[in-house]
Design a protein around this nucleic acid. Structure first.
Lengths: 158, 158
DNA sequence: TATTGTTATACTCTATAACTATA
DNA sequence: TATAGTTATAGAGTATAACAATA
């Protein structure tokens, strides 16, 4: 039968592996790289995500917060409990609609988030230093473009 | 207290989010994009990974195959059973050491893999078309560089 | 009746440990 | 005894469904 691939090394087409085959393990390794920093700050991955999301913009409902970080609303309840007990976030009922919880960072939460993020960024910088400067900026620009696309357009690009 | 971030939108430093915060959801979306193609071919994500890994180079032990695709050796046994039953892979004892199983793709396995990969690549191409050509090539080059690093060097870059 | 948050349950995925067969 | 593969068990993580409070 016809052999449609010059080299049978999994790098058909333009000589690369599938995007997901490169990106997913890279993401896993990046999470593993973050983990000691987060552990030193007493934060789980989800807790750190929450701190980041609350810094981005004040969030009005827990459901909205959960969706913003790609989690189920039931998933983050324990996380919010822990952060609140440690005084890193505030969670109080909205006077206007006492069903919803207004979520915000405390000053200490902001400090901890910044400290953890600084450690993470430092490692990222060293990793990115392996790329030529031009590739690095293009990589980051492309990454920002792709990661800001709505998920639908990634799943089914036209 | 001092506000160390000009804008509190989670984009400190060089105006971007954490690498993992961009890459991990992107990887998830890419897997979601692959999933209908794989389902149409009757393949799970792990089964597809196995077909790709066997295409890259013949593998001598199941343990080595599992590690190559980032799985536990116990995790892929059911996957191999299914692929073998469908005649997509061959799995026979090594005559030299009958403990080990020699793993290889059949012609039909190769065909199925190529067909699935073609569908996946087509979607990827449309997605990457959203990037300027220069960014696209730099992105792919950088991605190949980073994803080919040993995991240790990503976790703890010097 | 609908919605927010919560709790309880079930399900999936993954890792660990125990077993067999070969060496 | 050590290793490759397999099976069985247990654990973590996640999603689904039921519940209480408020609107």
């Amino acid at each position: 039968m016809a052999q449609s691939r010059a080299l049978d090394d999994g790098t058909a087409h333009d000589g690369r592996r599938d995007l997901a085959a490169m990106i997913v393990p890279l993401g896993r390794a990046l999470m593993a790289a973050e983990s000691p920093v987060l552990r030193a700050h007493g934060l789980s991955m989800w807790a750190y995500s929450v701190l980041l999301a609350l810094g981005e913009e004040p969030v009005r409902t827990q459901n909205a917060l959960a969706q913003a970080i790609g989690a189920d609303k039931t998933r983050i309840i324990g996380v919010l409990d822990g952060l609140q007990e440690r005084g890193l976030i505030e969670r109080r009922p909205d006077p206007g609609d006492r069903r919803v919880r207004l979520l915000s960072l405390t000053a200490e939460g902001r400090r901890l988030r910044d400290s953890a993020q600084a450690g993470i960024r430092e490692r990222e910088t060293r990793l990115l230093a392996r790329l030529p400067a031009a590739d690095r900026t293009a990589f980051l620009r492309a990454l920002r473009t792709l990661s800001s696309l709505p998920e639908d357009e990634i799943i089914d690009p036209e």
